[in-house]
Design a binder for these strands. Structure first.
Length: 426
DNA sequence: CGGTAACCTGGGAT
DNA sequence: AATCCCAGGTTAC
């Protein structure tokens, strides 16, 4: 399909700078969308997944997408108007993109009629839903500049990058990838705001999805309120200035633990950057991966893993490979089996990254993303029920004891992926 | 330099 | 019910 995306013109993107306004009345809040029973607010351990990651710019599908109004033209704030994105299921699968660890700020806001996720892009509150035919449509809940918002959304989705073309290349050199790609189409890497991405991953270290999400929600609540969808409040991500007003004490009280000092320290470091912290982060999009990693690593709380996540998910560093325990499993199983059983060390991180890059090329990070998703318990469950891989995927060895079968049932919640929902519309 | 032990917190397993 | 273990790590010996 969309074979054209590949040839789309490449356009440099300008980032939206965080505003320092601390509160805006502009939030006319769009009341809960239709058919969605009032999901309880936050409270409990938010079981909902969300994740990270970001990508490059290059969008410009204007000629494909209809910037025009279009469908159900209901101006009523209650009834959002849905506009097609012109991205098919193979180019964008909501369940394989938003709850897979790239961002913790997008929430599923409709579990019934369609798969629907809601989040914030810049200052725009938007919902995305997967239609019956798999195509994705969007609806802004509160936006002055619809055209600008649309462009921001396409940029955020890395819409100018054609997944089908890219995966064709990966599949050609890797049969295993080809097999997974058939089932997991539309697993896209986002292009998030660098600061937003950085803070989210500072919260992620040695932590679990549920708590990371709560922490990110706390930080988010410091930003301008934009609206409520499906019972959930959405805020613009707070600016660096706003973040600098929070104390380590407050963060600790909010349950950040030792990560509180990481956030404070990083915010301070960024604010001391001559040209501005946001600008400094943005500049990392123009330099090569290693330099970007090195620069990010100077920030407190940012190590190899977090730096790679920020690079891949927000700095257009498509070849960045966030090496965590899961990726380590993948790597030692398929790429460098000779290292299976050994312990992951910082040095081996780059070894793994190199292995991925030499196999998949400059978009290795995107390939890694799919392979990672395939490792998620929810996906494994599907594969198992499918071809009964039973015990062939013996645990390559985890830190502790983990010998209870192929699918470790507890990790599903660590990763926060809803197994059941993930499959219904694949 | 490579290999460990703390580090906050909350939830599930033993 | 008390403990232990672990979570997509980072930092300090």
């Amino acid at each position: 399909m969309q074979s054209l995306c590949k040839t789309l013109p490449i356009m440099k993107r300008h980032r939206s700078k965080p505003s320092l306004t601390t509160t805006t009345a502009a939030a006319a809040a769009a009341p809960p969308t239709p058919s969605t029973p009032p999901p309880p607010q936050t409270l409990r351990p938010t079981p909902k997944p969300q994740s990270i990651s970001s990508k490059k710019p290059r969008n410009i599908l204007s000629h494909l997408t209809h910037p025009k109004p279009i469908p159900t033209h209901q101006q009523s704030p209650q009834t959002p108007k849905w506009v097609p994105l012109n991205l098919s299921k193979s180019e964008l699968s909501l369940p394989l993109t938003f709850p897979t660890g790239q961002t913790f700020r997008w929430k599923q806001t409709d579990h019934h009629n369609h798969i629907q996720y809601t989040g914030v892009v810049g200052s725009h509150l938007v919902s995305l839903k997967q239609l019956e035919d798999g195509d994705v449509a969007y609806s802004f809940h509160h936006t002055a500049n619809e055209a600008g918002a649309r462009m921001a959304l396409l940029d955020f989705l890395n819409a100018g990058i054609c997944l089908a073309d890219m995966w064709e290349g990966f599949s050609a050199s890797d049969p295993r990838f080809a097999e997974l790609a058939r089932r997991l189409g539309g697993a896209r890497v986002l292009r998030q705001d660098p600061l937003e991405c950085l803070v989210q991953f500072l919260c992620s270290s040695n932590n679990n999805i549920g708590r990371i999400t709560r922490m990110v929600d706390f930080i988010s609540s410091l930003g301008n309120y934009l609206g409520t969808v499906g019972g959930l409040d959405f805020h613009e991500f707070p600016s660096l200035d706003r973040l600098s007003q929070v104390s380590e004490e407050e963060l600790r009280k909010a349950g950040f633990g030792y990560r509180a000092k990481y956030i404070i320290g990083t915010v301070d470091a960024l604010q001391s950057k001559p040209g501005g912290g946001a600008e400094w982060l943005a500049s990392l999009r123009e330099i090569d991966l290693q330099k970007a990693i090195d620069a990010l690593s100077t920030l407190p709380g940012v190590g190899p893993k977090v730096a790679a996540c920020i690079a891949l998910f927000s700095l257009d560093q498509h070849q960045a490979i966030p090496v965590d325990t899961h990726v380590w499993q993948i790597a030692t199983r398929y790429l460098i089996p000779e290292l299976a059983g050994t312990h992951l060390t910082p040095k081996l991180c780059s070894r793994v990254a190199d292995a991925f890059v030499s196999k998949y090329g400059k978009y290795a990070g995107w390939a890694q993303t799919l392979l990672f998703i395939a490792e998620l318990p929810s996906q494994k469950t599907l594969l198992l029920s499918d071809s009964c891989i039973s015990r062939c995927q013996k645990p390559v060895k985890q830190k502790g004891r983990r010998s209870s079968g192929p699918i470790d049932g507890d990790s599903s919640q660590k990763l926060g992926i809803e197994g059941q929902e993930a499959d219904e519309k694949l």
